[in-house]
Design a protein around this nucleic acid. Structure first.
Length: 633
DNA sequence: CTAGGGTTAG
């Protein structure tokens, strides 16, 4: 190129920027004999829009201010950067700079500011920018940005009002924003309705419309509608679009058609984490952890969502050790930083294992990574520490929690209940209602648990009454089972019987189980026999129920009845799930089931156990008998 | 030649 000018220099720099060749772009930028603000803005936007050059962007922006007047282009570019990095205070500084230099009043600034405030979590400021601007500056883009901001905030009616005002500005993006907004906020039917109207009003569906629509179908598991649109998309030849195909994978996974989902996933040229992640979740839910792991391992680039899906899959399948192991692998990788959801899943694993040490380690990890503590995370910590046996830590977390919700109160009340801190639980419930938190069915379950273990029949009845009368919560199976258990433990079998007679529904296995237990505690084998048929009808396949029945007859000395039930158990090949105990020593878990002889230190353990049983038998003959009965099983 | 909005997964 014999003749060069500022335009040609800018063009060649831009070409290298677009090719992500920042070494060459920067060399040309430094060497350029002519520079105008386009040169700077080209370089700046290149830095902003690529990973890893954001420090350079800030440095260049600072330099630019001394070279020439900063243009509106540079300001909107920088707003995009602070939005991506969620740097609200920088965003505010840019906003005031724009106001001072008269750069805040153009279409680009308007939409960038709305997006920045919305994505940085300041919906009110986003609205102020939009609402306070002159009508002349509001264009389609800033209107659409505002609609999206409303959905992000969960303000659905506000979104609709903005959408309906100045309707002539609406375009395809406006419609797609509405469809995805409703779909994401749990109004799938509305999203599906709008999808249809969009076409009727003459707008053309594109990949955005399809993705959101398929996502809405997945949300309500509407397989029929999903298949209809699938056929349509196959005909249109759009099925290989990565957004669309991964949405279909998700749809079929949610509807339980894993084979179908898997075959679609295979049609994609390169592994798409957006298609693989739902499959990992799907296989995990069916307990096929090997296939889930195989898919996970097949992904070359794993982001934090994939890691979370795999870890949560292990936790759901109760393979907690694998979850911890995978987390250790994650931490050795420097690329992915664990987020709140990963921690919540891991804490769930700790709660399942009832392990205090792991819980403490995860907690420390949360603090080290500077993860923000919200109600959900506090809740997981309270639950983990309670179940791990340390209610003091649980309480500390609860007291330090700034934003609380009903669920957090529920966990703390349940934690107190678990550890026999009945007064604290009761007191916390009063505090909860005084602070204006609405108790739910779980709250009352925890409260009834308190009453059951303390034998507080009167208070339990009060809660049960208050739940229906004051809070309009209709009791579920678990609430009735709790009440029956409460009466049973308090030796008021007559009340349990009359509650059984007035149940508004057919009792389930849990209620019948509680009733049988009440019969056992009150040594009433006749009533138990009456409930036996019903229970075995519902849960004939559950071996532990036969064992429970046998136990009742045995405790009454009715050995014939016991033998009869045991025979039924064998005849139906019903297996009793073995209950187990475990203890962490160092990094190793030692698990025991009843009559277990497999442990390496078997002899020492049984000698100690024998000594303990001897000591116990001195204390009480009853305990000894029941202990022997357990070993017999 | 440079700047703004909407899509998929835990």
């Amino acid at each position: 190129m014999p003749e060069r000018n500022v335009f040609t220099w800018n063009a060649i720099i831009n070409t290298y920027v677009k090719d992500n060749n920042f070494v060459q772009a920067r060399a040309l930028f430094d060497a350029a004999p002519f520079k105008d603000w386009v040169t700077y803005n080209t370089m700046l936007s290149g830095y902003v829009n690529s990973e890893g050059f954001q420090d350079e962007a800030v440095r260049l922006f600072s330099e630019m201010q001394f070279v020439d007047e900063v243009s509106e282009y540079a300001l909107t570019t920088m707003l995009g950067l602070v939005t991506k990095l969620s740097l609200l205070s920088y965003g505010r500084q840019l906003h005031s700079y724009m106001l001072k230099t008269g750069n805040s009043l153009n279409r680009y600034s308007l939409s960038s500011l709305i997006a920045m405030y919305s994505k940085c979590g300041c919906f009110k400021d986003a609205w102020r920018v939009f609402d306070g601007s002159d009508d002349g500056f509001v264009d389609t883009v800033s209107k659409n940005t505002m609609v999206a901001a409303c959905f992000r905030e969960g303000e659905l009616e506000m979104a609709r009002n903005v959408f309906l005002s100045r309707r002539q500005l609406n375009d395809e993006v406006s419609w797609n924003t509405m469809i995805s907004g409703f779909a994401q906020n749990g109004y799938e039917e509305e999203a599906i309705r709008l999808f249809r109207i969009m076409m009727e009003e003459g707008f053309v569906w594109n990949e955005h419309s399809f993705s959101s629509f398929i996502s809405a179908c997945s949300g309500v598991k509407n397989l029929k509608l999903g298949k209809e649109i699938h056929g349509w998309i196959l005909k249109k030849g759009m099925s290989l679009n990565p957004f669309i195909s991964s949405s279909f994978v998700n749809l079929y996974c949610k509807c339980g058609l894993l084979n179908y989902a898997h075959s679609i996933c295979k049609t994609t040229q390169k592994a798409n984490p957006f298609a693989v992640t739902p499959l990992i979740v799907g296989y995990s839910e069916t307990g096929n952890m090997l296939e889930a792991r195989r898919l996970f391992d097949s992904l070359p680039d794993k982001n934090h969502v994939v890691w979370t899906a795999m870890i949560s899959g292990y936790v759901k399948a109760h393979q907690c050790e694998e979850a911890f192991q995978l987390f250790r692998e994650l931490m050795t990788q420097k690329t992915t930083v664990p987020d709140e959801l990963i921690f919540i899943n891991l804490l769930g694993a700790c709660a399942i294992h009832a392990t205090f040490n792991y819980g403490k380690q995860i907690h420390a990890c949360i603090l080290r990574t500077g993860t923000a503590m919200d109600a959900k995370l506090s809740n997981s910590l309270v639950d983990t520490y309670s179940k791990g046996g340390n209610v003091t830590y649980a309480r500390r977390i609860f007291q330090l929690a700034v934003d609380r919700d009903t669920i957090l109160y529920n966990s703390m009340i349940a934690g107190y209940a678990l550890h026999g801190y009945e007064n604290e639980a009761i007191q916390l419930f009063s505090q909860m209602t005084e602070q204006g938190f609405q108790p739910d069915e779980v709250t009352f379950l925890a409260l009834l648990s308190v009453c059951r273990h303390r034998g507080l029949v009167k208070l339990g009845e009060e809660y049960f009454f208050s739940m229906t009368q004051d809070y309009k919560i209709s009791p579920g199976f678990d609430h009735y089972a709790s009440m029956i258990d409460l009466y049973g433990r308090a030796n008021q079998l007559d009340k349990a019987v009359s509650l059984m007679e007035t149940l508004p529904m057919e009792p389930d296995a849990v209620i019948l189980g509680a009733f049988l237990n009440a019969c056992k505690m009150n040594r009433n084998a006749e009533l138990a026999k009456a409930a036996e048929d019903k229970l075995l009808q519902i849960e004939g396949g559950n071996g532990s129920r036969y064992a429970q029945l046998a136990g009742i007859y045995a405790s009454e000395g009715k050995w014939n009845e016991m033998g009869r039930v045991m025979k039924m158990m064998r005849g139906r090949e019903a297996k009793k799930t073995a209950g187990c105990s475990w203890v962490y020593i160092g990094d190793t878990v030692h698990t025991f089931i009843s009559g277990d002889r497999s442990h390496m230190e078997n002899d020492a353990i049984y000698i100690t156990l024998g000594c303990l049983i001897k000591e116990l038998s001195k204390l009480s003959a009853t305990i000894f008998l029941e202990e022997e009965f357990c070993i017999f099983y």
